[in-house]
Simulated assay, not measured.
Amino acid sequence: MVPGWNAVDPYVLHLRKGKQQCDVAITGALDSNEGQVIVAAGRAGLGIVIQPLYILYGDIVAGRLIPVLEEWQLPPLTVNLAYQSRRYQPAKICVFIDFLVERVRTMNLEEQWTTVSPRRTRK
Rank of each mutant, 00 (worst) to 15 (best):
102 E>W: 06
79 V>N: 10
87 R>L: 10
73 Q>G: 00
70 E>T: 08
40 A>L: 14
74 L>G: 05
98 D>M: 04
84 Q>M: 04
87 R>K: 07
84 Q>Y: 08
59 D>V: 03
41 A>L: 01
43 R>T: 13
85 S>R: 10
23 D>F: 14
113 W>H: 07
74 L>A: 05
109 L>A: 10
72 W>D: 00
49 V>T: 01
73 Q>K: 00
11 Y>H: 08
47 G>M: 11
65 L>C: 07
95 V>E: 15
56 L>S: 06
84 Q>F: 05
111 E>N: 12
67 P>I: 08
18 G>Q: 06
119 R>E: 15
88 Y>R: 13
52 P>T: 12
41 A>E: 10
13 L>Y: 12
99 F>C: 05
18 G>N: 04
35 G>S: 12
100 L>N: 07
55 I>S: 09
56 L>G: 01
19 K>Q: 07
45 G>A: 08
23 D>H: 14
61 V>Y: 04
122 R>P: 08
44 A>N: 06
39 V>C: 02
56 L>R: 02
1 M>W: 09
75 P>L: 02
60 I>T: 12
91 A>W: 12
118 P>H: 03
8 V>Y: 13
67 P>G: 07
96 F>V: 01
10 P>Y: 13
71 E>D: 14
78 T>V: 01
93 I>R: 02
52 P>K: 10
78 T>A: 01
1 M>A: 10
13 L>R: 08
112 Q>E: 12
122 R>E: 15
88 Y>A: 09
105 R>L: 07
78 T>H: 04
57 Y>N: 06
61 V>P: 05
35 G>W: 12
57 Y>L: 00
102 E>A: 04
7 A>N: 12
76 P>C: 04
89 Q>H: 08
119 R>P: 12
103 R>P: 00
114 T>D: 12
64 R>F: 09
116 V>E: 15
51 Q>I: 06
117 S>M: 12
33 N>Y: 07
29 A>G: 09
86 R>C: 02
23 D>G: 06
113 W>R: 03
93 I>T: 12
114 T>G: 03
84 Q>A: 06
68 V>R: 09
120 R>I: 14
39 V>E: 04
122 R>L: 13
2 V>G: 08
64 R>G: 03
65 L>H: 11
96 F>S: 07
86 R>H: 08
91 A>N: 11
24 V>E: 11
99 F>E: 09
23 D>Y: 14
93 I>Y: 06
121 T>H: 10
68 V>I: 15
22 C>M: 02
17 K>P: 00
119 R>G: 11
46 L>R: 10
9 D>I: 02
68 V>K: 09
89 Q>E: 15
28 G>P: 04
53 L>D: 09
97 I>N: 06
54 Y>M: 13
112 Q>K: 06
102 E>F: 05
30 L>E: 15
107 M>N: 07
45 G>N: 10
118 P>S: 05
39 V>Q: 04
102 E>G: 03
54 Y>D: 14
98 D>Y: 09
10 P>L: 05
25 A>R: 02
102 E>K: 06
16 R>C: 02
51 Q>G: 00
81 L>P: 05
101 V>N: 14
39 V>A: 05
97 I>A: 06
94 C>F: 03
